[in-house]
Amino acid sequence: MLKAEEGGTAVVVCSTCRFSAQARDDDRGVRGGARLGEALRALAATDTRYAGIAIHDMPCLFACGDHCTVHLRAPGKVSYVLGRFAPDRDAARAILDYAARYADSDHGSVPYAEWPEGVKGHFITRSPPEGYVAT
């Protein structure tokens, strides 16, 4: 049921997420989450700023009311679920730009002024790391 992955900063992509609020799949029958994962990996492979950010797929993050969701996490940091993205390169860049700032933060809190425009309005939840609550 669980598969071990390396620690560190990671973007976990819901590989089974809907393509959009209206459509389950794209015109080729591929889910939006799978397309977003492809876009994240393609961009990460071409930009060294994202070298320390792992990208993992997971079927269903249980955020089915939203499409194209990701979970951003790192040991000892607040984690976030974001969604309602288009499964494209622009969304992938916004997610990875935020993830890079998140990786550089002490506890997972990135000042709002540093948020890429493309993630604003996409946050669904935040969760404290084990043994902590956010203040």
Rank of each mutant, 00 (worst) to 15 (best):
L61A: 10
V110Q: 14
A4K: 08
I124V: 13
V70F: 02
A39S: 12
G37V: 02
A103I: 02
P87M: 01
V119A: 08
Y80W: 13
C68E: 06
D47Q: 07
V13T: 11
H107V: 14
R41F: 00
H56M: 03
M1A: 14
F62T: 11
A44M: 04
D25Y: 13
L72K: 01
L36Q: 06
V110N: 14
H71I: 04
T48D: 15
E38L: 09
E6W: 02
A74H: 12
Y50E: 03
P128N: 10
S15Y: 03
A42S: 14
Y132G: 07
G37F: 08
S109A: 15
E130W: 03
G32W: 03
P75V: 05
R24C: 00
L61N: 10
R93K: 14
E130H: 13
T48C: 09
G118Y: 08
E117D: 14
Y98A: 08
D104G: 15
L2M: 06
V13W: 01
S15K: 04
H107S: 14
K120N: 11
G65R: 12
R41Y: 00
W115C: 11
R84G: 14
F19R: 07
G32Q: 07
G83K: 05
D57T: 05
L40D: 01
A92F: 01
P129W: 13
R93I: 03
G7A: 11
A42L: 11
V119S: 05
E5A: 10
D106E: 15
C68H: 03
Y102H: 09
M1V: 13
T125V: 13
G37I: 00
S20M: 08
P128W: 11
C14L: 07
F62M: 12
G32M: 06
I53W: 00
Y50Q: 01
C17W: 00
R31T: 07
I95M: 04
G118C: 08
A86C: 04
D66F: 08
L43G: 02
S105I: 08
L43H: 01
G52C: 06
V133M: 13
Y50D: 04
V110Y: 12
G7E: 12
G8P: 04
L43S: 01
I53V: 13
A44F: 02
W115T: 06
I124K: 15
G52E: 14
G37R: 01
H67A: 09
V13R: 01
P59A: 13
P116D: 05
A23M: 05
E114G: 01
P111Q: 12
F19K: 09
Y80F: 15
L82T: 04
A103S: 10
T48N: 11
A92P: 03
F19D: 09
R18T: 00
R49P: 03
E5Q: 11
D25G: 00
G52M: 09
C17Q: 03
F123R: 14
E5R: 04
C14V: 08
D104V: 03
P116Y: 11
R73S: 13
A63R: 11
F123M: 14
K3C: 02
M1C: 10
C64V: 00
G8L: 09
C60A: 06
A23D: 13
P111E: 12
G33D: 02
T16M: 07
R89L: 05
R18S: 11
A92L: 05
G131P: 09
K77A: 06
R73N: 06
S15A: 10
R126G: 08
R93E: 11
D97Q: 07
Y50A: 05
S109G: 11
E5N: 05
